[in-house]
Amino acid sequence: MSPLESVDERLQQAMKLVLLATVPGMLVLFWLYGWGVLINLILTAMTALAVEAAVLKLRQRPLKPTLSDGSALVTATLLALALPPYCPWWLTVSAATAAMLFGKHLYGGVGKNPFNPAMLGFALALVTFPQPMTHWPSSHGMDLLGGLQQIFGFSFSQTPDAWVQATALDSLRINKSLTMDELFAGNPAFGHFGARGVEWVNLAFLAGGAFLLQQRVFSWHAPVGMLASLFIISLLCWNGSGSDSHGSPLFHLLTGASMLGAFFIITEPVSGAKSPGARLMFGVGVGLLTYLIRTWGGYPDGVAFAVLLMNLCVPTLERFVAARQERNAP
C-alpha cells in the first residue's frame, strides 16, 4: 500500500466516524423539527456531490478517489444540521454550492481550504438571505407533505399558521424588560436550562463528540478550549436573572450550535490549527467570539462567524506557538 493510499483510507475512516457521530444529534433534531431536517440533508448531500463531480470533471481530475473520501458528505451534513429546517430549497442548494465552490475547490480541493467549508456556506447564506435564514420553526415540526410544501412551494396542504418563532438566543438578545425567570416561564422558545428541545440536541452532539474523542479522531484541545472559554466569559458577564442578563453559562452551552461547533466544526483538521497549543487557543478564540457575537453582535448565534474569524488567525497562532517552543527549548 502506497503512502497516498494509506492517507486516503485514514481520511475515509475519519469521515465515516464523523458521520456516525452526527446521528444522535440528527435524530433529536428530526424529533424536534420533523421532516425539514431530513429534506435539508438530502438537498445538501445531492448538491455537494454534484458540485464536487462537476468541478473535478472541469479540472480533469479522477472522480472516484475524491467523491468516495466522504469529505463532501461531511460538509453537506454539517451544513444541513446548521440550516433552519424548512428553509426554501434554493437557499439550501445555494449554501451547499457556495460551501463546495468557495469553501473547498476555490483553493484546490480537499486538504487546502483555509476556511471551514460548511461554515463559509452558512455565513454566505446568512449574509445574503438574512430573513429566511432566521426563520426557525416551532418545535412541533410538520408532516412530510407540509414540509415539502413549505420548502418547494407545493400545494399539497394548507401551510400551518404561526409555525415560525424567534429562537431563545434571538429573544434574549432583543429582550429589554423581562427577567430570565419570566422568559423561561412564559416564552415557548425557552426550556429548562436553554432553548426548548435544543438542550437535548446539544447533549446529543456532546455524546457524539465524546465518541469521536474516544476514537481519537481529534484531540481534546479545541473543544475544551471553546467550551471552557464560553463558560468562563458567560459566567463573568452573567447578571443573575435580571432583565439585563445575558444568560447563564449553562444556557450558552446548551443553546444554539455550541456543541455542534465544539466537536464537529472547529475540529475540522484542514482549516483548524495543527499543533496542540494552537488548537487550544483556536478553541478559546471561537468560544469568546461566539459569546461576543451572541450578546452584542447583529446575529443571534455567532458560531459560524467566530469559526471563520479564527480560521484567519490560524497561521499567527501556529507561529506564536512555534516561537514559544523555540524560546523554551534547552
Rank of each mutant, 00 (worst) to 15 (best):
I151K: 04
M226S: 08
W220F: 14
T159P: 03
G191V: 02
G287Y: 02
F251P: 05
L126F: 13
M259E: 07
A162P: 04
P223N: 12
L79V: 01
V303W: 03
W200Y: 13
A204P: 03
R324A: 11
D161K: 15
S245H: 09
N311F: 13
Q149Y: 11
S229P: 06
L227P: 00
H246Y: 15
L317T: 00
V286L: 12
M119R: 04
L63S: 10
N113V: 02
T22Y: 01
A125V: 06
G25P: 14
G242H: 06
H140S: 11
F115K: 09
L183I: 10
L43T: 00
T47L: 10
G147Q: 02
T22W: 03
S271D: 07
W31T: 01
H246C: 09
G297K: 08
Q149I: 06
A168F: 05
S155H: 14
A278I: 09
Q12G: 08
L172E: 07
S245F: 09
M180T: 12
E318M: 11
T290R: 13
G146K: 00
V284W: 03
G70P: 03
L81Q: 05
E5D: 08
Q158P: 07
I42P: 05
L144W: 15
A48C: 12
A195Y: 10
P269K: 04
M142K: 13
A72C: 09
L29W: 02
A53G: 08
L41W: 15
P223K: 03
G272K: 03
P85D: 00
V201M: 01
L312T: 08
P84K: 03
S275F: 13
K104N: 07
L32W: 06
L235Q: 10
V23N: 08
L126Q: 10
K176N: 08
L144D: 06
F152S: 00
A195L: 05
L63Y: 14
Q60M: 13
H246G: 15
L236H: 04
Q325L: 06
L63T: 10
C87W: 01
L73P: 04
V37K: 01
S157R: 14
S234K: 13
A278T: 01
H221F: 11
I39E: 01
S248V: 07
Q158S: 15
T295H: 11
L49G: 08
T159A: 11
T290G: 04
S258F: 10
F156C: 05
G103E: 00
S271I: 07
Y86K: 06
L178I: 11
G285Q: 09
L203N: 01
Y299D: 02
G261P: 10
I232A: 14
V286Q: 01
F30T: 02
I232K: 09
